[in-house]
Design a protein around this nucleic acid. Structure first.
Length: 109
DNA sequence: ACCGTGACGGCGA
DNA sequence: TTCGCCGCCACGG
């Protein structure tokens, strides 16, 4: 039985690429977009926003190009975002005084 | 089929 | 360095 709507082919690609992000590192929306051959990072974000596999797919390892955290589990702000940062720290990701992931931890194309 | 919206990215001031 | 504007792609109504 289908408890939720099935993701589109595009979304499946996004989830797959996101799953490829190794633990202890993070990737940018643009990076994921490039992996799936998409020129719009915003489209990737739009897909993760409705991601029904929230903790299953390491979407918390996807950050903005400048290293700042945007959304998580459909929330653009709030305690969920803090949780996201917490998860990353637990995985060994280091943040600077600006609450941004250090560039060195970000996967680069 | 069209339009508005959104977890972005890059560049210029 | 920070702020704002525009362009970009996919989805839902």
């Amino acid at each position: 039985m289908k408890l939720n709507h099935e993701p589109t082919p595009f979304q499946t690609k996004v989830y797959e690429a996101t799953s490829c992000i190794p633990r202890g590192k993070v990737a940018t929306y643009g990076w994921v977009a490039r992996q799936i051959g998409c020129k719009s990072a915003q489209a990737v974000g739009g897909g993760l926003r409705v991601n029904p596999f929230a903790p299953k797919v390491p979407c918390h390892r996807v950050v903005a190009a400048d290293g700042s955290l945007h959304g998580f589990a459909g929330h653009t702000s709030g305690p969920l975002i803090e949780k996201k940062r917490r998860l990353l720290q637990e995985e060994g990701i280091a943040f600077d005084a600006h609450e941004r992931v250090m560039k060195g931890q970000i996967l680069r194309p």
